[in-house]
Amino acid sequence: MSESKRRQGAVWLDLDKLEAAEQAPKESARVQEVPLDQVVDIADNEGVELIESPAPRRRRGWKKLFGFSLGAVVVTGVGAELYRLLSWGFSIHLGVGIGFSVLLALLAISGGVQIWRSFKGLRQLRDTERLHDRARELLEHSGQGRSAALLAGLERRYQDQAGHSSVIDAIRELDSAYSDREVVQFLSRHALESQDAAARRCVQRYSVESGVMVALSPWATFDMLLVGWRNLRMLREIAGIYGIAPGAAAQWKLLKSVLHGLAFAGASEMAIDAGSAALGSSLTSTLSARAGQGLGAGLFTARTGLQAQKLCRPLPLERDEGRVFDAVAKGIVQRLGGSK
């Protein structure tokens, strides 16, 4: 248990022994002060938190084995093929062999970079998720002194990224009197202001564009491709806005989580959706059926975008989303009205 818990009485202190926690108010020392006295509490908390249910372990074994063996077969197969290619090249002429090896080296290097990037993106996504969970937990907690881990995580995440200095600035501005919930609320409001605005603009733009495209394109299958393509582009852009390296793996994982989120949306989101559908119907009764499809596609894109924003943002999003839907619906109708 925390030792400060034991100390209940009043204590007079010698002035010389003081370490002024707030001597230099703009330094990060002020933030550090919160954790130090209750570090034990956080450790306690983590211990409780990390107890996992052991049930799904068994299934994993087969899956892992399958993945491992598949990987091994592919790697040996490709390796053998490449080796044969190289030896065939050298057997024809030394130049051809060297040409092949240079090509292969280029392939290996560029592939490596790609893999490294996508792993970085994956790691960042995982970090974001962890920060998100922790922040959500702190929002429920009204005491003080547990926010250190979150702050350290945020600082690590955004330290060396250009264009994200607002996060670090907001952390510096935190007041020593804030409780954990207030810390999260403060950061959520003030640390990511510009990013949120950019993300919202991005979602709005892509949604309106894809809505208009669907409404104007004459082929049904083409519509699907268009919406998919726009959505992927949007995901990548939103990830970039929140500082997540846009690798293929990260994008794939993000897409998976977004679709998962959309499929298992909570009741409240359903309600929003129903609302926007009703809005859509009232607006589109004056438009053609095709325009209605466009509106639907636009709203779908907007939902995807918001879901992605939620996943990429390290702190929980507390603002209402109705406004974005309204803006998207209005934007599409306006464009169509203008283009008619």
Partner: peptide
């Protein structure tokens, strides 16, 4: 007041 820390 100012928040401060001390080693005790």
């Amino acid at each position: 007041t100012q928040a401060a820390q001390a080693q005790m």
